[in-house]
Write a protein that binds this DNA or RNA. Sequence first.
DNA 1: CATGAATGAGCTTTCATTCAT
DNA 2: TATGAATGAAAGCTCATTCAT
Lengths: 197, 197, 197, 197
Amino acid sequence: MARIAGSNGPRTAAQIRRAALKLITRHGYEAMSLRALAADVGIQAASLYNHIKTKQDLLYQIIAEHLDALMQSADVAVAQAGADPVARLRAFIGHHLLYHLDKRQEVFIANFELRALEPANLAKAVAQRRAYEERLIRLIEDGIAQAALKPTDTRIAAYAMLAMLTGACTWFRPDGRLSKAELVQLHTDLILNGCAA
Amino acid sequence: MARIAGSNGPRTAAQIRRAALKLITRHGYEAMSLRALAADVGIQAASLYNHIKTKQDLLYQIIAEHLDALMQSADVAVAQAGADPVARLRAFIGHHLLYHLDKRQEVFIANFELRALEPANLAKAVAQRRAYEERLIRLIEDGIAQAALKPTDTRIAAYAMLAMLTGACTWFRPDGRLSKAELVQLHTDLILNGCAA
Amino acid sequence: MARIAGSNGPRTAAQIRRAALKLITRHGYEAMSLRALAADVGIQAASLYNHIKTKQDLLYQIIAEHLDALMQSADVAVAQAGADPVARLRAFIGHHLLYHLDKRQEVFIANFELRALEPANLAKAVAQRRAYEERLIRLIEDGIAQAALKPTDTRIAAYAMLAMLTGACTWFRPDGRLSKAELVQLHTDLILNGCAA
Amino acid sequence: MARIAGSNGPRTAAQIRRAALKLITRHGYEAMSLRALAADVGIQAASLYNHIKTKQDLLYQIIAEHLDALMQSADVAVAQAGADPVARLRAFIGHHLLYHLDKRQEVFIANFELRALEPANLAKAVAQRRAYEERLIRLIEDGIAQAALKPTDTRIAAYAMLAMLTGACTWFRPDGRLSKAELVQLHTDLILNGCAA
DNA sequence: CATGAATGAGCTTTCATTCAT
DNA sequence: TATGAATGAAAGCTCATTCAT
């Protein structure tokens, strides 16, 4: 029996997506039951299936769409930074950090729930993530080639930066001591100049 | 009916621990069934209960023992480095990275399965981890106080370092391109001096 | 929103009937979901209810209409055979077999899905089938009374014949080795004369 | 919590088999829920899985074991009948009918629930049944070769006999008007000599 | 110390059906 | 006439855990 007049299909789908982000982040994919998800949305568990294909597919959609959006917005941010390699690296760092702080739930899920993906979905997600990492590696390579950055193992440096920046999502609180801008400043400085006096 | 004469209890307990590390790392705590764990060990699920209290307790023991060992060995490593603040920080970084690369499974679990802990266990584990983080924060504060390190937000710097170093466990492969020593060298340099030319 | 202008209701109803015959025969009544039925027709499950009352009613209609048609056409066939008891029995046998071979799906359903009928519907269907069996029993009784058939237990003989003839629907294939006419010939001979030399 | 002292595993397994025969016969495989089966046995649904692999496997075991037993006992019965082809055919008929009347539930299931078998299981069951049918076809061929039976299409004759005999299971009631021996007599006569005067 | 059998709770998913649009 | 969204019930199955043996 439809409870509410008017087409609320898209609204329900959006609510499901939002609730899933919350519950997966909080309890993990395996630990989130569809009953709990439905209850959070305010519908019956069976009704979820008017909006999702399976629980697994719900997870994959969340991850895949996040990785897509991350990649596209990173490309835009770097492109706007011009040609200077350090400026481009700064743009990437700033974008990555801000985007991640904005989408903390998606980030958490895309990083920690990959193992819950079925093999086929996992392969696609890993390929998407790999492509993103390659963007950063290219930036570092360019910086080194133009003598703006010190020679180093570019892949390890990229992984180290990404781990550091992504890690910030784990503990950042919007109402905490530091603003996002300060966070960007601190991390950019740490990455570019290190902590030694 | 005991299959083998003689006490093989401790051996079984160790096998359980080892199998649990493997399966939790691979599939996650929620996704690891005790039946699968028992099968991996070669016993029936019911027999597990001669060696563990509950599934939850098994997880907590793994995490708590790991955090204890990490703390104690870190203290030893730093103490051996003498009094120079940068030398002490280098010792911490090297120890953290090497220890994490050795105990990749325990590290993974202690980082990603905290949310699976019951509140009481979670509180204890978080306190342990917090104490470890404070060790690093003190090192950085000391370095700044002695003008060996640049002034910065010490907590954020500590978190950033830990995230970077711990992240290496995720992708490091023992048979990979780089040795552990190289990894330590690269990360120490990155942390102390940054990547800018 | 109706997709096609103009009334295609009767056509849809016929498609539903046809698809139901196919799917119930193939998978059984319980195993056929209305979603699958609707998909086969090319509409949504909800739209089925513009053409059927319930799933149970759909089944009953199929069975009841089949039993009605069977009875009426049998009566016609026997009446056309004249007065000779053996000729009338031959007519019944031939008609039963040919009709069953033509309506294999309906026959299958009417025989194997009776147990899926609700009590009230079951009672009516059983009564219809019982009446049909009685027709054959009367034919055998007449034959015996006129010394054209050997005395025997008429009910058992009737059941045996019906089982044999109906069974042919199970394995008959229109493109098989034998024609329908040959099948009728073989079965009629077997029933009348047996297989002994 | 084990309710009853002493090992009642095999007993439970047998009860499950018996209850499954009853419920599948009565309602059909699809319509029998494992909860209902467990309730009939007096255990929880989950406990069924200490004795069966899956619902599908339970069905297959019932069918396969029945077909095996049928084949073996038929071979014994025919062998005991000596060399005369008609005596051997009589033995087969008598055995088939009596065995079927004894195992009405298994027979019903093996005939009407084949379509519920998964493809792999279906293939095996069909092969078993085919082998049984071939036994009868050989008997008829032998009879014809020795001029004890009239020439006819042996496969169709075999199918017709089997359908007739198996059909008796559908309506036979142990407390009915006719004894099993009379049933055998009537059917054997009908098959061998037909009903014509 | 290990086991087979049992349990109650819970899982994801499918079902027939309803109803406002 | 057709639809998408909803529902309550129920499905088969797995889970961690218990306990007498």
